[in-house]
Nucleic acid binder design. Structure first.
Ligand SMILES: [Zn+2]
Ligand SMILES: [Zn+2]
Ligand SMILES: [Zn+2]
Ligand SMILES: [Zn+2]
Lengths: 163, 163
DNA sequence: GGACGACATGATATCTTATAACGTGCCGAC
DNA sequence: GTCGGCACGTTATAAGATATCATGTCGTCC
């Protein structure tokens, strides 16, 4: 929830270099996504924008999202119908996510092993990839540890009762 | 569009073995998916079911889909909001798809290279995977060939005009 | 400076996808 | 027989996304 100054500044520069306009609406959406640091749905973004001066309608949000996606500044997470700011938008890349079912945390993979293995599989079959969606739902390391502790405590408690 | 007798028979056996019920509604949905041989949306399935004796409402379709997903008889393609019958449901597996943007054809990968590289990446980070979504959008081999031919013909035509 | 065109936004309506909530009927266990 | 679990019916509504047309904004060209 830190102010996403750095991300915005970076985006400004990238857009200027490319000759595209990071307008108020687009910047606002990017700010909301970066500040959240988690997947946010389009309608939630819309609500967040309402807090400002004016009311916005769905197309406004979706248009801003479309632009940010094109520029590689954000990613869409298909399995959540939600969007996240990109960690490292400097170079265009396909995104891969680890999504925690417990705490909702989302981590963007930077490793390209998956990308390479996908590339080799598709090349073999003559398929020309354009966009990749790789999303793994599961339990993140932190939640796994927490659950492990809880299990232990429970076991201890039961042992205590039996004694 | 072949009659999906084999798939249905196989599903019947699997359900019996597991002690779960492949009811009329569930079988009907599976038939529609297998017969289509392409991704089909829930509401399209609903329309297909209407052709039969009775009217069905969305929850009926979604409940059947939920059951079939649980039993591994079908997969959901997140990026299309659609469902497909599974090629090889005998052993539970996570699904990986190549989706053609041109003709809409969907191929389920059987190769497990992607699965393995994903597994190693997630293991390293202490993440416990539950469900994987791997969907690659692009141009299938057949459409790529077709486009290649079209490009050649166009080039020939232009050469002809210049001459 | 004024006309024009490209692009961005506003506003309204509608469409698609998915689920909540509650009731009914079937069937086997006891 | 009745009880409980499960599948299904029915109605309503939530949630996500897009189509369409009007309006505004801004730089360019004359
Ligand atoms: Zn990224
Ligand atoms: Zn977690
Ligand atoms: Zn499968
Ligand atoms: Zn194709």
């Amino acid at each position: 929830m830190t102010a996403p100054r750095a991300e915005i500044a970076r985006a400004e520069v990238m857009c200027r270099e490319r000759g595209v306009r990071l307008t108020d609406q687009r910047r606002r959406v990017l700010e909301i996504l970066c500040a959240a640091g988690r997947p946010v749905g389009a309608y939630e973004i819309m609500d967040a924008m309402r807090e400002g001066p004016r009311v916005v309608a769905p197309p406004t949000v979706y248009r801003a999202l479309e632009f940010l996606l094109e520029q590689g500044l954000i990613h869409k997470i298909e399995s959540l119908h939600a969007f996240v700011g990109c960690d490292h938008p400097e170079h265009p890349h396909s995104s891969e996510f680890l999504i925690c079912l417990e705490c909702g945390d989302v981590a963007e993979l930077k490793d390209d092993a998956v990308e390479r293995s996908l590339a080799s599989v598709t090349r073999e079959s003559g398929f020309l990839p354009r966009r990749r969606v790789v999303e793994v739902m599961g339990i993140c390391a932190r939640c796994a540890r927490k659950e492990e502790c809880a299990r232990k405590e429970e076991a201890d408690r039961v042992r205590g009762l039996v004694d």
